[in-house]
Design a protein around this nucleic acid. Structure first.
Lengths: 192, 192, 192, 192
DNA sequence: AATGAATGAGAGTTCATTCAT
DNA sequence: GATGAATGAACTCTCATTCAT
């Protein structure tokens, strides 16, 4: 018994090649929204629905859950890398703070998973964030004395970021940086 | 890790005298173990199996997933409250640190959930931890100046606690406290 | 997002422990019927439906597709082994012939799969059939001269068994045995 | 962000002059290969991919799965018909034997499907094979006494043809013919 | 009161088929 | 004509929850 539609209802179909890129973008956008709202552990079908596409499209573009997450978070990291070329450490931390308060998903690559199981792509992305930060880190910065301190500090801030509204989360993030004695610029998005 | 004996010639079925209480305790213990190993998002059937009881018993004692989690964490909090009567702040933070490194589940009440949705029971438990800490907090402690700083700091440490082994997680936790400039006693369990 | 029912429709539930064995038997019976009609490559959901049970029950009893097939075919082989103790070779071949004409599924363990990929359980069952046959095979039988001839002959007959009705298939099977110069008793089921 | 097709120098798209015929042939060849490797139950997309064409082309040439299978097997039958004009029965059986051992797909028209459901095209092709064989069948041949014996014998051999390698399958096929007392020439392909 | 089987919805994944370009 | 993306249903497998015994 091969898999066959078996329903006589003729399905409408397909969009054409131009739609492909649009759908990919829509999926990433939808995923970003839903990740921000509910975290990474969300039904893929919900993402497809929000993007307005069928489930198959999601699988065409992203072979598995990790690929989609990587694509979403990749954008965040790229923004951080871009920002690293335009500001100082405080400014970059502001950008990171923005992203932390904006998206529950982004937290997971810096804070990783509480069970200790970290997907490979998250490790790679985390390294890129670290590299970006380190280019701007002065030798005498309080987070420069021990090699792990920098990313531990970021993880700590991500731990503090909880709460119902973005503003509330930002307030907590700023308090966290203050407790670390680290100067942060204003939390701000990077314009695309 | 603990496989239950599976009493051979015994009466595995229904009731001993205080079987109910024993089952409840077994469920909590099993849940604690499994939470620590796999996080909170675990099939309830696995917990019942590890506890050596049927699924029905689990539901009899805990109407829903949250109730079980609350019961597990309740014990942690009780240990913290007990410890608060026997040591100073540094000692209490050592106890909390132990719990953070021991169980992925415990993190979730102090760090709460990354999506910002905090179950009601977690709020209550968190308050009790805060109260315990505050009884020992000197007026001039670095975390005493702003009202939220205390629990933000705890959340921050919980954010730093990740990694494959308990030792590794403890090392990160200590680094986190150091970055906060807070003195902590040795991480240690409270014996029951 | 844990998997949760999310529908408020309260589902009816469950049968009790006695039903377990009954369901298992029903599943095997249903599978046997459907296998006979459509071959082994049938949706498991169809089997569950025919058995009048939920999908979960099927998985409880048979962890995978192979386990169910093995359970069904196991019965056939057991009948053959039983028959081997009560008749001579011709009689046993009659029993096998009956099973071949009765069930498309049974063919697959003797004829195996045309792509050459044979599941482990099928190999084991096939060996048992061979053993049963060989206990009754006279030294001077035409299929006794070469070691592989016996099971090749059975596979050949299974290759001939096609057609819309059991009677038609049996006619072809008898013709096949005749072409092999092998005497066969009447095709007959083994009463359970 | 929209990446454009813009084939720069070449015209990979649409039509050369007899592209249609070439595509058709490529599809049949691809299907033959994949059928041989994985059996008839293969995603059509895999065939299109192997042929290096889009899915649409496949559907243009072959309205359904059966049409493609028929086209593949048609070639086999044509080779048999050709061979029937150049050799004797033993030689023709050698050709058929080659095809049986070469392709899991070809088996299905001679052995047909184990569920008894035979597609119409298979019946027609089978008849042509029979006709080709019968032109070379001597009156006194062991397979000439009963009308059905000829094709039953072929089906029997196809039933014996299983196993991982072509050589192994050929060995079994030869054993099968031997058990039937039928002389066969060497298994050989018909060059195209 | 405990057991553990059953239910059935839902998530993940795969494909046949259509169709915009 | 060709391409290959999109659709959406079918199938597999997993669990939360109920309930007969």
């Amino acid at each position: 018994m091969t898999q066959q539609p078996m329903s006589d209802a003729r399905r409408p179909a397909s969009g054409g090649p131009k739609a492909a890129a649009r759908n990919r973008a829509a999926l990433i956008a939808a995923a970003r929204e839903i990740y921000a709202e509910h975290g990474l552990d969300v039904p893929l079908s919900a993402i497809a629905r929000r993007a307005g596409v069928g489930q198959g499209v999601l699988y065409r573009h992203f072979p598995d859950r990790a690929a989609l997450a990587a694509a979403v978070l990749e954008e965040n990291v790229r923004q951080i890398e871009r920002a690293a070329q335009e500001t100082d450490l405080a400014g970059l931390l502001g950008v990171i703070t923005w992203q932390l308060t904006e998206s529950a998903a982004f937290i997971s690559i810096l804070h990783t998973d509480s069970t200790g199981t970290v997907p490979a792509y998250a490790v790679a992305l985390s390294r890129r964030v670290e590299r970006a930060l380190r280019t701007l880190l002065p030798q005498d910065h309080p987070l420069a004395s021990e090699p792990d301190d920098l990313m531990i500090a970021v993880a700590m801030v991500s731990g503090a970021v909880t709460g119902p509204t973005r503003e509330y989360r930002e307030r907590r993030a700023r308090a966290a940086w203050r407790l670390l004695g680290v100067e942060v610029g204003p939390a701000r998005p990077v314009e695309v």
